[in-house]
Each structure stands twice: as structure tokens, then as C-alpha cells.
Simulated assay, not measured.
Amino acid sequence: MANSKRELFLRRRLRVRNKLRKMAGDRLRMSVHRSSKNISVQIIDDVAGRTVASASSLEPALGVVGKNNVEAAKKIGATVAERARAAGVEDVYFDRGGFLFHGKIKALADAAREGGLKF
């Protein structure tokens, strides 16, 4: 019988994360989460177990509250890049989770690259 969408998503997320951890070196992880209504991103130091910078469509200051579209993803990508550079982070590895690198996830990644993050 075919696997459910959720099972495929979880399998893809583990596969992506394990491959990235092997190649990560000493870089921080830029983790993306997308729901049906919001999108959020965190830059995580896995060694220390803390979040260095984050941005979300739930933040009223960004003006994209409750939006989950390409424009909101671009704004969030640029914001997290600005906050990461303020925290002294330039090199990260992009953990897309189980989400396909297409649409909103790609727009967020491109905006973060334009903002000065390297991955």
C-alpha cells in the first residue's frame, strides 16, 4: 500500500537533515518551517542548543501576519539574514526540512542569500 503524505514528509525530512549534518562542519543550521497559514525560519547552533536568530510571519512588525505566500517568504528571508548578520553569522547550512525546494522555500532561500547569508 502507498505511504501517506505525512510518512513521506517525515522520511524526506530525516533524509535531508542527516545528509546535511554530515557535510555541515562547524556551520549553524538555518531551519525552515512552513504551515498552511504561516512560515518561520530559525538559525540554530546545534552544539550549544540555542537559537541565534529567527523570523516568522507571526511577528506584527514585519507586516505579513497570517500570510504564507511568496512575498511573505521573501520578507522573512531578508529579515532573518539581517538578524543573523547582526549576530555575527554569515555561513549556515539550509535545512529545508521535508519541504520541497520550490515556491515559498526557494523564495525565502534566495532572499536570505541576497541579504548576505552564504549557503
Score class of each variant (00 low, 15 high):
107 A>Y: 07
70 V>L: 10
5 K>N: 15
71 E>N: 13
89 V>A: 15
7 E>Q: 11
116 G>F: 09
97 G>C: 09
11 R>K: 15
58 L>M: 07
67 K>W: 02
102 H>C: 01
118 K>C: 05
95 D>R: 14
75 K>S: 07
21 R>C: 02
2 A>P: 15
38 N>D: 13
49 G>L: 07
48 A>G: 15
21 R>K: 11
108 L>W: 04
66 G>S: 03
104 K>W: 01
77 G>D: 07
98 G>W: 09
99 F>I: 11
76 I>Y: 07
29 R>Q: 06
10 L>E: 12
97 G>I: 04
115 G>V: 13
57 S>K: 10
105 I>Q: 01
60 P>V: 06
85 R>A: 05
37 K>P: 06
117 L>N: 05
4 S>D: 03
74 K>Y: 09
17 R>P: 02
44 I>A: 15
69 N>H: 09
93 Y>S: 10
118 K>N: 13
14 L>S: 12
37 K>V: 06
103 G>N: 01
106 K>E: 12
6 R>H: 04
87 A>M: 08
14 L>Q: 09
98 G>R: 08
47 V>P: 08
38 N>P: 01
75 K>V: 11
94 F>S: 02
100 L>I: 14
32 V>C: 11
108 L>E: 05
55 A>F: 04
23 M>P: 00
21 R>E: 14
103 G>T: 06
47 V>K: 15
13 R>Y: 07
3 N>E: 11
56 S>W: 00
76 I>Q: 10
104 K>V: 00
37 K>T: 10
19 K>H: 06
60 P>H: 13
113 R>F: 06
103 G>S: 02
28 L>A: 12
48 A>L: 14
53 A>G: 09
117 L>R: 00
2 A>R: 15
26 D>I: 04
64 V>T: 01
51 T>S: 14
84 A>V: 10
95 D>V: 12
10 L>H: 02
4 S>P: 05
31 S>N: 11
88 G>W: 13
56 S>V: 08
79 T>K: 10
16 V>A: 06
94 F>G: 12
83 R>C: 00
108 L>R: 04
19 K>Y: 00
93 Y>V: 13
61 A>L: 10
